[in-house]
Amino acid sequence: MTFGTPWWVPPLLFFVAALVQASFLPSLGFVAVRPDFVVQSVIIWAVLRGVREALLWAFAGGLVLDLFSGGPFGTATLALLIVAFFASVGELRLLSSNVILPVLAVFWGSVLYSAIFLFLLATHEYNVAWLGTFREVVVPTALVNTALAPATYWLLARLERRTRRTVPVEW
């Protein structure tokens, strides 16, 4: 078994991603639509590594997002877990070396994440403007996530290769 990169690099990346999207990007002022780095990272990781790691990082990434959020605790975690599950069970891993599929997964995963998030907000008696939020926030965010997905995929695919566990074949 070999590890090219320490185990703590992926969670650190998720933490930095959450910090960037919660504090750095909004302070720039001119960023009208904020990308959701944690969501796209979890989806791409789900495609690269499958359901087990996807759920683990969705759980960790969701908790970090909830920590940075003023909304009901657990909302981001639950939404991210469901998205990670769907992103990883569709056997997309078989085609994970093709960048198109993870990118498409990021778009639909982002939309699904927002829909679940809004649904959970509604169950907490938040006033949710479904149509307007989809038009003004959800779809633009999903498009930005999709546009940035190739770069995120390139980064995570490199990380995935360096942290991949190899097991020798026994004869």
């Binding site: 499958g50 359901v51 087990r52 759920l55 009901p72 605790f73 639950l78 877990l81 190899t166």
Partner: peptide, 29 residues
């Protein structure tokens, strides 16, 4: 490279959803 077969994905999802609901409940208390 060979990867070990994953257990039932639904079982994993159930475990993590249960953990999240537990955290949500703990937070509400």
């Amino acid at each position: 490279m060979l990867s070990s077969p994953s257990p039932n994905p639904l079982a994993w999802l159930t475990v993590f959803v249960a953990l999240t609901i537990g955290a949500t409940f703990a937070n509400s208390r």
